[in-house]
Simulated scan of single mutants.
Amino acid sequence: MRPGRIGGAIRAAVRSGVLSCALAGVLLSSVTAARAQVDPRILPLHPAYARNPTCAPVAATIPFDVHEGTRDVALSPSPREMPLNQGESAICFAYATADMISHRLGRQISPLDVATKTYFADPERLTAIPALRAHLKAHPNWRADIAWSRNAAEMSNIGNPKLLPYFDKIEGGEEDTAALLYNIGGLCEDRDLPSNDGYRYADRTLRALRYRSRLAPRPLCFRSLAGTVPHLRDSRTDTFNAGWIAHVEARCRRVPLPVPLLPVSYRVAANQAEFAALREAGRPPGRRAVARILAMIDYALDHGRVPTIGYSWYLLEDRDPKDPDLHADHASPVIGRRKVGGSCQYRVQDNTGEYCARMREGMREACDNGRVWVDEEALRRTLYSVTYLR
């Protein structure tokens, strides 16, 4: 929860010797085809997962547009060169999920829209989507999973001493439930609801909503919040959250999804804190369980999908001794794979907005504008979940 183009990546891989010119030509042709239309394939529900035996090179990219949230060109490095970042928010799951969806749909999806649906969309609307019926039938506990994710959300105490569930104070979520709920209501591009630097570009709206909800509340249509859990309802925040939902719907020029979003996930722990507790208790997840996560990452990459992973941010950057967050639960998409020497490496796209120079030794040298090559063995020490879209 801590606060490039593929063609260029392929050409860089050729220069570094990771890819042959012939393979690069094939990949660039695939990129051109992918830009022409969305991949209509739906991957099997229960495939046979296996590691890629050669750690064959793969390069993927997240669709990226220049919009309101990336016009701060005076900054260095420019936001145009870095992934969308979550700023001071604690909704890394929404940024990772948005990246995963953006890759699947071929357009940049707004992470703030992903977070809004994750917390407030009515799950029962999923049952009215014909393309989801088989998926929901195969996952009979989907309602309970969504409720668990929402009830596990925490509230920031920054400017919120009573820990009330204002939208911009809610923290945490699960990538699989977020992706499933994003099937509701059509997609919203980031150009409509800018999410770079967290809530920065929505700050004026959020301040106005907070003022009106405290001093001059308007009549509330409770139906806009009827589909969420009591944990995210409060008479002091309902007007604010309903106003935020109305703002999102007014800004978003929604269009139907070209393909359904069917998430598949696997985890060896509920979160990084549980993962660490298992290790400290002398019962760490077995290598076979973590190997399954890596096999699912390989499967997703080899089948044209960008998976997301759950891990600790402290893999990339040393913990400040004064930081009260002991585990730094984090989520990121995996956008590449390569073999260096005898080691398999995965390219993790970090959405914190942190500069490479501030990362720990070894990571800063492997980092390029927030995209970091991480050795498999280093990843194993903190990796606890994976999600991809069928």
Score class of each variant (00 low, 15 high):
A277H: 06
G286H: 11
Y299W: 06
L301F: 06
L301G: 02
G282Y: 09
A291V: 05
M296G: 06
R283P: 03
L294G: 06
A269W: 13
A300N: 04
D298A: 06
Y266E: 00
L278N: 09
G286K: 13
M296Q: 05
M296V: 00
A273I: 04
G286N: 07
G282D: 12
A281F: 04
E274V: 14
A277C: 03
N271L: 01
N271K: 05
F275Y: 14
R292K: 11
D298M: 07
A277Q: 07
E280Y: 00
P285N: 14
L301C: 08
R287A: 12
Y299T: 04
Y266L: 07
D298N: 10
L278Y: 15
V290E: 05
D302K: 04
L294F: 12
E280L: 03
R279K: 09
G282T: 10
D298Q: 14
I297L: 15
A295N: 09
A273R: 08
N271E: 03
P284M: 04
I297T: 10
V290D: 03
Y299K: 08
E274C: 05
R288D: 01
R292S: 02
V268I: 13
L278S: 11
A289G: 01
A273F: 05
L278C: 11
A273L: 10
N271A: 04
G282F: 12
R279P: 01
R292G: 02
A300D: 04
D298P: 10
E274I: 10
R288C: 00
E280Q: 09
P284F: 07
P285W: 15
Q272T: 15
I293G: 02
A281N: 09
R288A: 06
L301P: 00
L301T: 07
L294I: 15
P284L: 10
A269N: 14
A289W: 01
F275C: 12
A277D: 11
E280V: 02
V268A: 13
P284N: 09
Y299G: 02
A291Y: 02
A269I: 12
E274G: 05
P285F: 07
R267T: 13
A276G: 04
R292I: 00
A300W: 01
L278D: 11
A273C: 05
R279T: 09
A291K: 12
P285I: 14
I297Y: 01
A270E: 13
D298W: 12
N271D: 12
F275V: 11
A291T: 08
G286P: 05
P284A: 10
V290K: 05
A295R: 11
G286A: 14
A277Y: 04
A295K: 12
A269M: 15
L294Q: 06
